[in-house]
Design a protein around this nucleic acid. Structure first.
Lengths: 122, 122
DNA sequence: TCGAACCCTCACATGGATGTGAAGGTCCAG
DNA sequence: CTGGACCTTCACATCCATGTGAGGGTTCGA
């Protein structure tokens, strides 16, 4: 599929799809005319990437965790250097802390909303 | 406490503490000499704010959810306009989605790490 | 064959969080 | 009473994700 369709199906500006490619987050083959040609799986990947960006991860880190996300686990572990593994662990823990923070605050908001509803019902 | 101590205790640059104040995320009284004077509770608040910023929320939104976070629930619900409540609900749901995304990816990383460990053990 | 709707690259602009430093006031210890 | 470690404001700089538009090629249907 070409960039227009991918843009539409992921709700992502074309500009950003090119940017993600530049950052190594997605790949595109090229037609004879130079047009980008995307794989069907790229739709999910873009959605993944957007979710992580929205959750505060920079493209640099997202790129590092991408190998973890391939559906059928890749047979080859080319970049599994000790440093990379340490980075992944650290980043995984950081994500867990972020999620905790979000859930804690989500609960606080819910409680607040409940309190307001109680107050307004009286 | 003055800005230096708050900075040290929260691991936050002085510059940022002033910025958060400018954005309405924390408040400081002033001594006769113009120095900022922080309440003990500000330490926790700064940590809260940093967590939310790190999780991708902009200061604009954080400011809106702050009233939900005061420990003894405030008796007054001054800004509880319907729009505000709708905003809070929307933001709460958005936070839940973010957290989900983070946890999903955290699990993917964990699985990957396990696979690598298996591979290396053989 | 023309125009609309795609696509390309390049480049400058913007907004938000953060870094950095200048110019100066305050306070305390030696 | 002086030097160093605080504090103040102001302003410009940086990084990153994103917006925007110019200038130009491709494809396809009327």
């Amino acid at each position: 599929m070409r960039i227009g369709e991918l843009s539409e199906r992921t709700g992502t500006a074309r500009r950003l799809l090119r940017y993600y490619e530049e950052q190594g987050l997605i790949i595109a083959s090229r037609g004879a005319n130079g047009y980008r040609d995307y794989d069907e799986a790229t739709v999910d990947r873009v959605i993944q990437v957007r979710g992580l960006l929205d959750a505060g991860l920079p493209t640099r880190i997202i790129k590092q965790i991408l190998p973890c996300l391939d559906k059928p686990r890749a047979i080859y572990f080319p970049d599994a250097t000790p440093e990379m593994l340490a980075t992944l662990e650290a980043e995984r823990d950081r994500m867990a802390r972020r999620a905790e923070c979000l859930l804690r605050n989500r609960d606080a908001i819910s409680e607040y909303l409940d309190a307001v509803r109680d107050y307004n019902r009286v």
